[in-house]
């Protein structure tokens, strides 16, 4: 197989687009974060998001969030048609500020967790999940 220069250039651009697409800031996700934080800057650290690096099926992807001392944690799927996933609000008798659930991801994308701490500050983390589409629809 050989490529003309033009084809090679197009191929390269395609790869670049594919490479960057999952990390592209999603406007709807940004809006949801802003609504949650009231526009406050979210720091790093203090919130952990556990998600598989590769999900076998985007229909059921197990995730966990953990933010010791948080009041609530917002989870967003930045690449879904609508980014909202869940918001965990922790009560007085919560044994930890952590929770696990199973979520739907429309494709390879960043899953984002934003935690609101007891002092009113915010911290944020993100994790890229590759969603594979199997060869056997079966």
């Amino acid at each position: 197989m050989s490529f003309s220069r033009r084809e090679t250039l197009v191929l390269g651009l395609g790869a670049v687009a594919l490479g960057f697409m999952p990390f592209r800031a999603n406007a709807a996700a940004e809006d949801a974060i802003a609504a949650f934080t009231g526009g406050a800057e979210a720091g790093e650290g203090g919130v952990t998001l556990t998600a598989p690096e590769i999900a076998e099926n985007g229909n059921t992807v197990p995730i966990s969030v953990d933010a010791p001392g948080a009041v609530s944690i917002l989870v967003l799927a930045s690449g879904n048609p609508t980014p909202g996933v869940a918001q965990f609000n922790f009560g007085e008798l919560a044994g930890s500020q952590s929770a696990s659930t199973r979520i739907r991801l429309a494709g390879t994308q960043d899953v984002v967790a934003v935690a609101k701490m007891a002092d009113g500050s915010f911290v944020k983390t993100a994790s890229t999940v590759k969603v594979t589409i199997g060869g056997c629809g079966g």
Partner: peptide, 20 residues
């Protein structure tokens, strides 16, 4: 209260929540 979770359509069929 222990936990109060708001769920969106991105939560999978047969919603599962684990917490402490």
């Amino acid at each position: 209260p222990v936990i109060d979770v708001t769920m969106e359509p991105a939560i999978s069929t047969n919603p599962y929540v684990e917490f402490e």
